[in-house]
């Protein structure tokens, strides 16, 4: 959060000796920032680096499943995110904000939403877009309306719609032992949408399926996400309401017409886990009130199922979260707690 610092001159009593200790205390800068004025011992860097630690299980598993290309992809995105951040800091003439870790998260999250065969140059374009347009044009961390990583992903989706939906099987796939590297495969969602095939839920849980780097293994994301929830760095209401809505709404649709996938499939497929735990919970772009968090999660869940079942695209996590990001200021406004003493009309 960018803070304006002004000197608290008003309280200075003119008689005091400038070297007086009390005077020095008085001269402490007064920090003015936009609401919410919540007090916490957690600093932005601490939260951000914890999120990165929480992402590690998913990172490790994706390198295990997709091999070195996954490592290259993630390091490329993180490094280019850092460079873009430095460049924008320099242009705006502000302090370097790399240590707060937010650029690293953006790069890492973006990499995890990309298919392993995606070209690195295109990934750089997406990362730079995420940092420059997604974050700094809006005013930097804390002022962005949309989750920067998802915005970068959306830009790449619009730029390279074919490349971003061309997935390779994980290298440990049993079927692949006979086939050469780089066999393209559809994701479970794609298979379902266009071919009507279902995938093995067990493989989907562990991550042995085609898909983007960080979205294949549900278990690793649940571990990391659970860690975040325990540390209270993510509002538990958002993943619970998001996943719960997807499960419920998915179940209803499945009950109405069994040609739709069953709710467990919904939960485990695509980037839903990654989105629910790491993207929808982004503190900057999600509602701050508890009630708002519920609305946010339920709205995203409904949007997701509608996009998956009735839309032209197989996956809707990205758009469901981005759309809810867009209405977050409205949700905040309407779920604002009443002032003390403010009566109902």
């Amino acid at each position: 959060m960018e803070e304006k610092v002004i000197k608290n001159d008003v309280k200075v009593k003119p008689k005091k000796n400038p070297k007086d200790k009390l005077f020095k205390l008085d001269r402490q800068p007064l920090i003015i920032s936009s609401s919410p004025h919540l007090n916490t011992t957690d600093s932005v860097p601490k939260i951000m680096w914890t999120v990165i630690i929480a992402l590690l299980p998913a990172v490790v598993l994706s390198i295990y499943y997709f091999g070195l290309p996954a490592l290259w992809m993630m390091s490329t995105c993180v490094i280019s995110a850092g460079l873009a951040e430095c460049l924008m800091n320099k242009l705006k003439g502000e302090e370097f904000t790399i240590p707060d870790g937010s650029a690293v998260i953006t790069g890492l999250l973006l990499a995890m939403t990309l298919p392993p065969s995606f070209t690195l140059t295109s990934a750089i374009i997406g990362t730079v877009f995420a940092i420059v347009i997604g974050k700094h044009i809006f005013g930097g961390l804390g002022f962005n309306i949309f989750n920067p990583a998802l915005l970068g992903r959306a830009f790449l989706q619009a730029c390279f719609p074919v490349a971003i939906t061309t997935w390779t099987f994980p290298k440990t796939d049993v079927y692949l032992s006979k086939i050469v590297d780089g066999v393209t495969a559809a994701t479970p969602l794609g298979l379902f949408k266009f071919e009507g095939e279902t995938s093995d839920l067990f493989n989907m849980f562990w991550g042995n399926i085609g898909g983007s780097l960080g979205e294949t293994s549900a278990i690793s994301i649940i571990i990391g996400g659970g860690f975040l929830l325990i540390k209270k760095y993510a509002d538990w209401r958002i993943p619970v309401s998001y996943l719960g809505t997807v499960f419920l709404f998915g179940a209803i649709m499945w009950w109405i017409n069994p040609k739709y996938p069953d709710p467990t499939f919904h939960l485990l497929s695509g980037g839903l886990m990654l989105g629910a735990f790491f993207m929808a919970t982004d503190m900057v772009t999600s509602p701050i009130t508890p009630k708002g968090a519920w609305i946010f999660g339920i709205g995203a869940g409904i949007l997701l199922v509608v996009i998956r079942l009735f839309g032209g695209l197989p996956e809707g996590v990205m758009y469901s979260i981005l759309l809810m990001n867009a209405v977050t200021p409205l949700i905040n406004r309407y779920t604002r707690p009443k002032f003390f003493g403010e009566g109902s009309k």
């Binding site: 719609p161 074919v162 939906t165 061309t166 266009f194 032209g312």
Partner: peptide
Amino acid sequence: QALSGATI
């Protein structure tokens, strides 16, 4: 063979 990205 459908065009990739343009099945519809």
